[in-house]
């Protein structure tokens, strides 16, 4: 029988809906004590704060300072995007390792500061990119490393979903999210490409619009496509649009298609499902491994062993740079070098 070191993990804010998944996974672990705090603000009619903590097996703590005073081994930050830096800096000063929800931050300056803060305190900073842990992606990486695809020259990625729910209005408030579909959905695909190619993006061009969900009157882009060139000459397209209709039976999905001189692979890690019909129309019963659980396992193992996990803060910063370059490209109408 193996034993593991008991850990105390704090969840800082329940603003991101992924907090529910992380809380469920962590609270099911026998050797982990889960604390949580939720500074707000809360959208009307939503269960947040102590109520949310009670529903998800989390011990609620009054505020961030009180939580950090309990000296957690690590924290998971699920705050609004613009709050990531401050919470990371507070946590790292308190000596806690950090798993931060994506995007790592909303400016390159903030992202660099977060990486520096973790380094200065000698703690881990990991970026929450669960798709890295999809078997479809690890299989793709293995094939590429084995040379089955030859030399990669062209990549197409999509990450399309429904516009985030009204219960989390901060997603479409640029002062708290940093932007719309570009901020929400470019980074996952950019991260997979970063891991696959092992090189950062070189030049970014982007176009966006606000036709989808124009009825919601949000102040951010809802449709967007980003064109990226990498130093090796690889060209890539990333479609980040919130184009999954509300009537669809599932949240959306992510695809990555990689073409090499000797082979091609397309992955669709969220495609596995049983389909059918229920009283409301189309039915989608997804199945497959819990990628959040794999990501949490990686984080906790790194916390316990002191090794450096992936995806780390540095890749969080490199992939955020694709987003901020895309935002500058939209503003200028021109490609932006990195």
């Amino acid at each position: 029988m193996t034993t593991t070191t008991p850990l105390t993990i704090g969840i800082l804010s329940f603003a991101h809906t992924h907090a529910a998944s992380y809380a469920r996974i962590l609270s099911a672990m026998p050797d982990v004590e889960v604390l949580g705090t939720d500074p707000g603000p809360y959208d009307p009619g939503t269960v947040r704060g102590a109520g949310f903590a009670a529903e998800h097996g989390v011990t609620y703590v009054e505020d961030v300072a009180s939580l950090l005073a309990k000296a957690p081994d690590a924290v998971v930050i699920c705050a609004e995007n613009t709050a990531h830096r401050e919470l990371t800096e507070l946590a790292t000063v308190a000596g806690a390792h950090v798993l931060c929800e994506k995007p790592l931050a909303t400016s390159d300056t903030d992202a660099a500061a977060m990486v520096a803060a973790a380094d200065a305190s000698g703690v881990i900073l990991m970026t929450a990119y669960p798709v890295r842990f999809a078997s479809a992606f690890t299989d793709l990486v293995a094939r590429v490393r084995a040379g089955q695809l030859g030399e990669i020259y062209s990549i197409l990625g999509t990450n399309n979903g429904k516009m985030p729910l009204a219960q989390r209005s901060w997603f479409t408030d640029p002062t708290r999210s940093g932007g719309g579909a570009l901020v929400d959905h470019v980074v996952h695909v950019a991260d997979l490409i970063d891991a696959l190619l092992g090189e950062p993006a070189q030049e970014v061009h982007a176009v966006t619009n606000r036709i989808l969900r124009a009825d919601a009157g949000v102040g951010v882009e809802t449709g967007g496509v980003v064109s990226v060139r990498y130093p090796s000459g690889v060209i890539a397209t990333i479609d980040c649009s919130w184009s999954q209709p509300e009537s669809a039976p599932t949240w959306g999905g992510l695809t990555l298609e990689v073409h090499g001189t000797a082979g091609s692979v397309r992955i669709d890690p969220f495609a596995a499902h049983v389909s059918g019909y229920d009283a409301g129309g189309e039915l989608w019963a997804g199945f497959g491994a819990d990628l959040d659980a794999r990501m949490i396992d990686e984080f906790l193992d790194a916390v316990r062993t002191g090794r450096a996990p992936q995806p780390d803060g540095a890749v969080g910063a490199r992939t955020l740079a694709v987003v901020t370059a895309a935002q500058r490209s939209v503003a200028s109408g021109l490609p932006v070098p990195l």
Binding site: G150, E151, Y153, S154, L156, H205, A206, V207, T208, N209, I211, G223, G224, V225, S227, G233, V234, I235, A236, T237, D239, H259, G260, T261, A262
Partner: peptide
């Protein structure tokens, strides 16, 4: 766009972003 000579012959790819007069975008 890009083109390469591979073992099995030449390959090529192009990736295009279009902005329509309606405001729609295509790739």
């Amino acid at each position: 766009s890009t083109a390469k000579a591979g073992d099995g012959g030449r390959v090529a790819s192009a990736a295009v972003l279009l902005t329509h007069t309606s405001g729609a975008i295509s790739h």
